[in-house]
């Protein structure tokens, strides 16, 4: 098929690198990771270069994103969770920038790769586990024991809590991955309809208007999803970090 909707997720090597039999090539995915970091960091850096008391447009956006995440984290994990601010802000900016960069035609979407979102989710859960045990020792296990549960139900509830905790990295990663993947495939399929119908002649061009409208609408929706998924990722990160800061606080 000429416009294969999965072709956009294809990873191609740019600079082949092989270490110990493993393929560590610099690929288009790597290139867009670098681009994501460069855009996000560059934006935050240059937007604030004026250090204006009265912010300009770019500085306003940078400050707004900072305060948005700061408020989210303070609300989710309390003021003692603010030590994780750089981490949550980095995650949010990374995911958001990667999602938005992916909206450009011909650009690679870093977050449409399950391994990337899974690694980010593991980073979050790993941080929760390490910090939780480091800070609270075995009291951290209170996370699995909700207070006010009758003794008979306790084993069942604890089992459910453990399963829910274990499913967190999976749900966190699959949510972001699946949203980006499905959105981009849908966009590609509909725009593919436009191209293939348009090739059929006058009648086809008339029929191509419908998928064209659909593509335009979906593009708008995808921009919303790009922001929303970054937001959801950050919110859930805050919630999970709350467990590390206040175990048994639910």
């Amino acid at each position: 098929m000429a416009n294969d909707p999965t072709h956009q997720f294809q990873i191609s090597k740019i600079v082949p690198i092989e270490i110990g039999g493993m393929d560590f090539s610099f690929t288009n995915a790597s290139l867009f990771m670098v681009a994501t970091v460069a855009c996000a960091a560059g934006f935050l850096y240059f937007a604030t270069s004026q250090r204006g008391l009265i912010p300009g447009r770019a500085q306003s956006v940078a400050e707004m994103s900072y305060e948005f995440i700061a408020g989210m984290l303070r609300e989710g994990a309390g003021s003692s969770g603010m030590k994780f601010f750089p981490m949550v802000f980095t995650l949010f900016m990374f995911v958001l920038t990667a999602n938005l960069l992916g909206m450009f035609p011909y650009f690679f979407t870093v977050t449409s790769q399950i391994i990337v979102t899974f690694a980010l989710a593991l980073f979050v859960i790993g941080t929760v586990l390490v910090y939780g045990f480091y800070k609270h020792g075995f009291h951290f296990l209170n996370v699995f024991v909700p207070s006010g549960v009758p003794g008979v139900l306790l084993p069942l509830v604890v089992a459910i809590e453990i399963i829910s905790f274990l499913s967190r990295p999976i749900s966190l990663s699959v949510r972001l991955f699946a949203n980006m993947l499905a959105g981009h495939i849908t966009l590609k399929v509909f725009s593919g309809f436009v191209a293939s119908l348009g090739a059929l002649g006058a009648l086809g061009i008339g029929g191509a208007i419908l998928p064209l409208i659909m593509t335009v609408a979906l593009t708008g929706l995808e921009f919303l999803v790009a922001f929303l998924q970054a937001y959801v990722f950050a919110v859930l990160t805050c919630m999970y970090l709350n467990d590390a800061v206040h175990p048994g606080g639910h």
Binding site: I17, S25, A29, M33, V34, I115, L181
Partner: peptide
């Protein structure tokens, strides 16, 4: 492509490098 495990080492390495730097 997203389930092509042969790309995972490279993606993970570059993610660690770029995300760590960020």
């Amino acid at each position: 492509p997203p389930f092509d495990a042969s790309t995972y080492p490279s993606q993970l390495l570059w993610l660690v490098i770029t995300f760590g730097l960020f």
